[in-house]
Write a protein that binds this DNA or RNA. Structure first.
Lengths: 122, 122
DNA sequence: CCTTGACCTGGAGTCGCTCCAGTTCGGTAT
DNA sequence: ATACCGAACTGGAGCGACTCCAGGTCAAGG
C-alpha cells in the first residue's frame, strides 16, 4: 500500500506520515524499487495507534520513545505497556477538563439567555 | 491584582497572559502608574474562561474573534453565544476521540498481557 | 544609596505540523 | 519513441501557540 492510501486509512495527512518517519516515530518503512514507501498492514496498525495517541494529546517525544522501544524487540513490552497505561490515565484528566469546560459554557450560555441573572456576563 | 496572582488564579502562565494580551485575546487591561498590569475580577473571569477554552482545543483565532465581539458591546451577544455553543458541540467530538483511544489502548494492553492472543502486537 | 524582586519589552527558540518548489518515476496517448 | 500525466520524492520555509531570555524600569526594604 502506498502513502496516499495509508493516509486515508489512518486519518493522518501524507505530510504528517512523512514527518513521523523522518522524526523516528515509525518503525522502518519498506521502499519499492521505485524508491516509494510501501506500507504493510502492521505499519497501518501502527499509524492508526499513533493517530489516536496524538489526537488525545500524546507528545511526539513519547511517541518517539514508544517507537524506539518497539524497534528494540519483545523484551521492551513491559515498558511499552507502562507507557500506554500512563497515557490511558492521562485521558481521565482530559475528560474532566472537557466536563469542566462544558459546565462553564453551560453557565455562560445561560447568562446570555437571561436564565441566570447574576454577573459574569462575558 | 497583578500578573503573578492573575496567573495563579486562572492557571495560565505569566508569559501566556502577556502573549494573549499582545495578540488581542483579552479586553484592554488596565495599567497602574508604574506601567504594570492590574487585573480586575472581570479580567480574571475572562482568563479563566480562555484557559478552559484553550485546554479543550479552541484555536486562538476563535478566541481573538470572541474577544473582538466582546469589546464591541452587548449587541454581539447572540454571536458570542453561537460561538460558545459551537465549541460546546466540538467537545462531544473530543469526548468520543478519547473514548476511542481508551478502547484501543485497552485492547493493546490486553495483547501485552496475553489475555488476547490475536495479532496487532505493537 | 544600594540591592532585591516583581514587572516590563522585544526578540529568538521550540514543537508539531503544513505547504511549496523542484525532481523522479511508471504508465498511457499520440 | 516521445510527450505528458499523476503520484510520489526531498529539502526547506512558514505557521500557530507558546516559552524562554537579555536587558531595562520601578518601588520598597536594609
Amino acid at each position: 500500500m502506498r502513502i496516499a492510501e495509508a493516509a486515508s486509512q489512518c486519518g493522518l495527512s501524507i505530510d504528517t506520515i512523512r514527518y513521523y518517519e523522518k522524526s523516528n516515530m515509525l518503525p522502518p518503512i519498506a521502499r519499492g524499487s521505485d524508491g516509494q514507501r510501501r506500507f504493510s498492514s502492521e505499519n497501518i496498525g501502527w499509524l492508526i495507534l499513533l493517530a489516536s495517541l496524538r489526537d488525545t494529546g500524546m507528545p511526539t517525544a513519547t511517541m518517539r520513545k514508544f517507537a524506539a522501544l518497539y524497534c528494540k524487540g519483545d523484551s521492551t513490552m513491559p515498558e511499552r505497556r507502562k507507557l500506554l497505561v500512563a497515557h490511558a490515565a492521562s485521558l481521565q484528566e482530559r475528560r474532566t477538563q472537557i466536563t469542566r469546560c462544558e459546565e462553564l459554557l453551560a453557565y455562560k450560555i445561560s447568562v446570555y439567555d437571561g436564565t441566570t441573572n447574576k454577573g459574569g456576563k462575558q
